[in-house]
């Protein structure tokens, strides 16, 4: 990212439901254990990404994950946990 673009990034009105592409590698904080499915979830805005793998001890951690599939209409996706990068702040 150039120095100039650092100043301009984010100059837009962002949706509450971001979309993702299959194969995309992302960094997310793991939000919670979904009560219905029992799967780990990362909530990005109102979009929910369900983990194919991973244990409950990564809740709150920042992880590297790969998007396996994404449903644009329902704002739901499935991701694979690759690596735990850090704990959340505090």
């Amino acid at each position: 990212m150039s120095m100039f673009s650092k100043f301009l990034t984010g100059m837009s009105f962002r949706s509450t439901t971001p979309t993702f592409e299959a194969g995309e590698e992302i960094e997310v904080y793991v939000t919670e254990l979904d009560e219905e499915s029992g799967e780990l979830v990362a909530q990005v805005g109102e979009t929910r990404l369900y983990f194919e793998n991973g244990e409950a001890d990564i809740i709150g951690c920042r992880v590297l994950a790969t998007v396996e599939s994404f449903n644009d209409a329902e704002h739901r996706g499935r991701v694979t946990h690759r690596e735990t990068l850090s704990q959340g702040s505090f």
């Binding site: 984010g10 962002r14 971001p18 992302i26 960094e27 997310v28 904080y29 805005g45």
Partner: peptide, 9 residues
């Protein structure tokens, strides 16, 4: 309004 909102991703 979501102006300037960016996500971790």
């Amino acid at each position: 309004t979501g102006f300037g909102l960016e996500y971790t991703t």
